[in-house]
Nucleic acid binder design. Sequence first.
DNA 1: GTTAGCACTCAATGTCGTCGAGTGCTAATC
DNA 2: GATTAGCACTCGACGACATTGAGTGCTAAC
Lengths: 342, 342
Amino acid sequence: MLTDRQRMILNAIVDDYIRSAEPVGSRSISKRSDVGFSPATIRNEMSDLEELGFLEQPHTSAGRVPSIKGYRYYVDHLVHFGGESPDDVLKFRSYFAERMTEREQILQQAANILANMTSYTSIALGPESVNHSLKHFQLVPLNAETAVAIVVTSTGHVENRMIPLPPGVSVTDLEKTVNILNAKLTGIPMMRVTSKLYSEIGDELSRYVDHYEQVMSMLEHSLPAGDEHEHRVFLGGATNMLTQPEFKDVDKVKTILDLLDETPTLSKILSPTQSGIQVRIGTENEHAAINDCSVITATYAVNGQSLGTIGILGPTRMDYAKVIGLLDVVSRDMAALLSRWY
Amino acid sequence: MLTDRQRMILNAIVDDYIRSAEPVGSRSISKRSDVGFSPATIRNEMSDLEELGFLEQPHTSAGRVPSIKGYRYYVDHLVHFGGESPDDVLKFRSYFAERMTEREQILQQAANILANMTSYTSIALGPESVNHSLKHFQLVPLNAETAVAIVVTSTGHVENRMIPLPPGVSVTDLEKTVNILNAKLTGIPMMRVTSKLYSEIGDELSRYVDHYEQVMSMLEHSLPAGDEHEHRVFLGGATNMLTQPEFKDVDKVKTILDLLDETPTLSKILSPTQSGIQVRIGTENEHAAINDCSVITATYAVNGQSLGTIGILGPTRMDYAKVIGLLDVVSRDMAALLSRWY
DNA sequence: GTTAGCACTCAATGTCGTCGAGTGCTAATC
DNA sequence: GATTAGCACTCGACGACATTGAGTGCTAAC
């Protein structure tokens, strides 16, 4: 479809634009050491590339800027990532190792480090708890009226909530209840815990425990509801958006930052449609507010089972090579770390 | 110090400026229904007020703007808050009641609602856990190498962390350990738990449990370290900063938003030097980055014991009356809600 | 096929004059 | 003596305009 020279020029233009954020002209391309043509020749090629839809001109007497299609071609055919940034990889690994204290924070840390290293915004989706199973259930009474219900899943995830204690239920009844639950529900997938509670625990409870109905209602409130099995979302470097010249307009940036505050929207933006690395450029993103942003996502998986996604949000003029290379490493490293618990 | 008329005029100027964000001139003050003087008279008074340091002039032919001293006088002597905004109070209470599901989220919700209602940024400092005592300790083994350690405090706060299990320690030993800890440490203030662990639990453990040293080391990692008893910080409406005309400069706003990402700094900014409501205007704030912001804080207390702080960060040109009134109500309501657990 | 040369375009930048909101002073008025 | 009308003055905001220069497209020469 494109001649070798066109590809080379397109590549040079995208590279230049990514660095400078300014429309690139024929002269500056011609001056590059890897290009041996005069500005006039470059101009002719640029004109062709524009006609083909790979480049755009902000106005008549300005240089060219890559179009969405141009970026797409660049990402699909021109950029070569991988072994070329061992520095970044080392840097990431040393940061990451240093901060890896708490497991719950792996994702938060990864997002922060990525944001730092790229100067873009980073988003991480945690593993869905849908696939976890119940490991342990506990009720800790705080006083006569309130208790804390704690649920531990097979992956070490801990959820807790405050619940009112039904009046008249004795401490021994509570203990019996907890024992029955642990005996019967341990190992059951979280998704099916609530239904199992009714189908199998109900009878058992009614036999051994007084105030059966109140206890059941209490238990129902103690367990995570269905809609809480969602991805957990971690955000890093949200304010990096402000450093990008394309977002110097306060209103535009406000729209995006507000978006970043909405967990469900974030989750939607990031959700991959395929495993591995995925690049969505500009209007390829469904959400209109980020139509001049690009999103690069990488899924991480253990034993072939996809656990979550980590991604970078930046301007369409993004350093694709660097980000893709980094995300590749990060997703693998995270999978390796998480494999301990899955 | 100031004549009645000067006070009235200063009040009018601050009011106007808070609403318009633009230097206010003598004419616009003269036109207000509650002021019966000609622009010339106002001008003379304004000139005096400027000489006294309550007003400033951006440039010769512009109107006047309140100085820090002017705001200070306004807050101390002119603004009357309290009964005058029952609408806001009702609005807040209805929002708050609606969202009050999870206790851990009280502060987050309060911060969000406040930010929403004021269009400023809201920060809430949670109760320090220093004063809590241990309620329950639990170890949940996930597999042969890892376990989850869970600590519940007397206030229902749950902390959990992933720890490696020392090799060779049996499940029964773990159970014994947990039982001893719960028997000996329940009711002990969190601050003294670690020292108590060595002074009293050590001997006991060595008598009943194998691999005593490893278990002790494991327990040490299981308990929250001293530096984790800090305030927890919740932030609401950080992006509201972007809507204020004084922060239309991207760089300035970036400095502030970056600040808001640093929990310790936030905590320092908000920490009150006295109980009740406190207003810090502009350079009265120690942190240079917010020298043209004002911070209004309210402490909330149960039984005379201060638990935490909730505050608002906005431009010096802030609606002090509204914010102070709201914070007063919010801090009381929060105290009432939290009193259930303290 | 490539490139030098040249006319052309157009945003960015700078200069200048106008406008108007606002001040400060003085003299008239209450 | 306090207040106010009147007026000259200041200075940023804004629009009109000319200038500049980076960049293009086209044509003709290489």
